[in-house]
Design a protein around this nucleic acid. Structure first.
Lengths: 122, 122
DNA sequence: ATTATCTATTGACTATATGCATATAGTGTG
DNA sequence: CACACTATATGCATATAGTCAATAGATAAT
């Protein structure tokens, strides 16, 4: 059963990195939305609008990929909502990784074919 | 100046492969739309609806990435429209390839971090 | 003559991703 | 108090992607 944040058939030649990155970050460490912004940057998702991230987290929670709870020790702001990955989320991440690997192969082929062509036609 | 088939800022964590693949195929050989369908399959874009491809070609022509002309020797159907890549299109392809390489790096990092984590937590 | 196959094009519709603006609320500082 | 920063959340507009279907022209096969 494919993940679910995407309609069937959509996501053909594309590969959205945000979902696997969020899941990967949460697998490494539970975190709240605001801090995730910085974690995403490590994987190339820089300057993401927070609205996108929060919406993604809500959707993932609705799908059971993550759970959340209010943090006890409040810091400089309203209570943080800390997200944790679920076993289902871990399975989804695993599927995402497999997809990424397939995608990686095609991307490498594109780049390789391009370089092969351009080096032949100097 | 970035390509143009995308609004500014869009295409952040995503990478649509169709555009570079079309340009790469046309760089290797001029071709008409219908035959391109098969060429795309080689790069993982299987069973693409023709409407998507034709629309992409029209947009690319409007942007000056490709040009087209009616084929003289007509075959089993209406006159083919043969597409050729333009110098602008070649530059765009070059940019796409550079983007793909960057994207590739991030994808590899995701996969690598995932495997590093899972091998540590057996 | 009908059918099938090749080829191009377009319209209507749905789904989704993203951007931008804004609302809300707690916490600390001057 | 006013203000800045942290943190979460929602609404609206738009760009893009994809499905499905319809139209249409040409040629080959039955």
């Amino acid at each position: 059963m494919p993940y679910g944040r995407h309609g069937k058939g959509r996501r053909r030649g594309r590969m959205r990195l945000m979902d696997p990155i969020i899941l990967l970050c949460l697998q490494k460490n539970s975190a709240h939305g605001y801090s995730l912004i910085e974690d995403l940057a490590e994987y190339g998702l820089i300057n993401i609008d927070v609205s996108i991230l929060y919406r993604a987290l809500h959707q993932m929670e609705a799908l059971g990929w993550v759970t959340s709870n209010q943090e006890q020790e409040s810091s400089q702001g309203p209570p943080r909502r800390v997200y944790h990955i679920t076993p289902l989320g871990e399975n989804v991440l695993k599927e995402y990784i497999a997809d990424l690997e397939k995608h990686l192969g095609y991307t490498q082929k594109i780049i390789q074919d391009y370089k092969a062509f351009t080096s032949k036609h100097l």
